[in-house]
């Protein structure tokens, strides 16, 4: 089934996104990693929808996009607020709460 190639691609993109979140230090890049994970999920949903001949997966993809947009709004607001205070968007600089 050649459709499965899309699934492998989705899994690879998801893994790249997860790695980005876990390894990168810049908040914006980390955030892009999360977006990549969500979009990889969309690809998986659309592929599964094709395999099942069912529209649900495509509808879900739209919902995920909307949720991702809402997340961007809140997330960038928080990151900008921190950046304006500290002039840095590095995850490592945000360490006051470490005991």
């Amino acid at each position: 089934m050649e459709l499965s190639n899309y699934l492998y691609l989705a899994a690879i993109l998801f893994a790249i996104g997860a790695t980005t979140v876990l390894l990168r230090r810049n908040a914006i890049i980390v955030f892009m990693g999360v977006e990549l994970m969500l979009n990889a999920t969309n690809l998986a949903f659309v592929t599964f929808a094709r395999i099942h001949g069912d529209l649900t997966g495509q509808v879900v993809a739209f919902f995920v996009m909307v949720v991702a947009a809402a997340e961007v709004v809140v997330g960038l607001a928080i990151i900008v607020a921190i950046f304006r205070t500290r002039r840095s968007a590095s995850v490592d600089d945000v360490n006051l709460l470490k005991n």
Binding site: V21, V34, M37, T41, A44, V60, V67, G75
Partner: peptide
């Protein structure tokens, strides 16, 4: 909270994708 929460929801929705699949 936001960065880890967003990461966790991404995990959640990918899990949903697999169950849907």
């Amino acid at each position: 909270y936001f960065l880890l929460g967003a990461f966790a929801s991404a995990l959640f929705i990918f899990g949903v994708a697999l169950l849907y699949g």
